[in-house]
Amino acid sequence: MKKWIMPLLIIFVSATTSAQSIKNGKKDGKFETMDIVESAIECTDCFDWELIGICFWLKCKLFSCSVETSMRVRHFIPDLVVSSYTYQSEWEDTKDWNHNPSGAIGQTESIRDQATALDFKSVDIISHPALPIYNALGGEEYFCESMLDIPMMPHFLSSHDPSWSEPGIEQLYPQSILGWPRFRTGTGSWMGLLEGSWAPLYPRCGWGAHPYDPINAAVAAHRAAEIVTRNAQPHIYMPLTGNCDNRCWKPGAVNVNNGTDNRFQMLVPWVEDSTRILNGSAAWANGKNRTRESYMWTLWRRYSCCEKKGQAFLFKIDFKS
């Protein structure tokens, strides 16, 4: 490992022990950039490192060639921070980037954590401030680099996207007309299709009508994440472009009810020490309702890679899918 990487990691880990602990607990007051960095470093389960196979390379010298091997690994990297809110983001350093959120229409709260009428959520998606740490780690043999290089780069600010408040063309999509796919409340099996859902995925906009405010926020967060992880969508945004390098396989786009490559770690109102996809029983929202109606997640994305050991990549053998 490069000599400067370990001291850098020690500094940030030390900050997590000397500062107020925010792991797996409720976060009150301001949520600052260092809090987001700490929440990623502390979430070792979110990283989920695995050895999954072997890569084979052709290495040639002046008069001979040989086949070299390297380990193929995979793990998650905190690529993005997703904020979903009615009035203002909880991220103190970026809360003024998304102007004039529309708020809710006829929104009222109850003691049962339920809201009524039609709700609108603004969404920010910004590259994670801890990216330099994970990309430095990715320069080593058994770790991957993100396809993103610049921390705190805005990829989606809903106030700049007219289609977020007025869906327009997406209302004509077959998915919007049929109301499918939907965020399942079931177990993921075909029987779960009979158990209802949080909301339809399309049209991908900020409007929602679920009685639980955290669920409206989660649906909006997922919709925006689906947009930015794809190219040529009918929205105004900065797609995720770039390559993690020539030994790396990038994660797929965010997909509803599928957490293979993309999983969310809640930051506000609770900092959780695990990740999940955004669907399931409505009981998930219990205790998460906020008077300020503001929520945040880190979007962890799974990369796989192997160290380059020669001039040409030949093939790979995976131990597991």
Rank of each mutant, 00 (worst) to 15 (best):
E38T: 12
I52C: 12
N231R: 13
D119E: 06
Q175N: 07
S102H: 13
S176Q: 00
D273K: 09
S39T: 12
K288P: 14
A232W: 14
S176Y: 04
G186F: 06
I54A: 14
Q107T: 03
A217K: 02
P132K: 04
A104E: 05
L9N: 09
R184G: 04
G287W: 01
L80C: 09
H99D: 12
R223A: 11
L51A: 15
P78W: 02
W190G: 03
A225E: 01
A40H: 06
I22M: 00
A312W: 11
M6T: 07
T241K: 10
N24F: 07
I11W: 01
D161Y: 00
G139I: 04
R72T: 00
L178T: 08
C205R: 10
L299I: 05
G192W: 00
P200E: 08
G168E: 06
F56S: 09
V123A: 01
S159G: 09
Y85L: 02
D45Q: 11
K121N: 09
A283G: 12
E68R: 03
D245A: 14
G208S: 05
E32T: 11
H99I: 03
F120M: 09
A224R: 03
Y237H: 08
K23E: 15
T116N: 08
W270H: 15
D119K: 08
A130D: 00
G208H: 02
D79N: 00
V254H: 04
I105Q: 07
M191V: 08
Q265I: 06
R74Q: 10
D113Y: 11
G138V: 03
H210C: 03
K308S: 15
C305H: 10
R302E: 10
R182K: 13
Y295C: 12
P239E: 12
N231W: 11
E307Q: 15
C46E: 06
W249L: 08
N258A: 10
L267M: 13
F183Q: 02
I111R: 14
H235I: 12
A15G: 13
E90R: 06
G186C: 04
A285C: 03
I54P: 00
L8W: 05
R302Y: 07
V73C: 02
T298W: 03
A19R: 11
I317M: 14
K3P: 06
S163E: 04
H99W: 04
S127R: 01
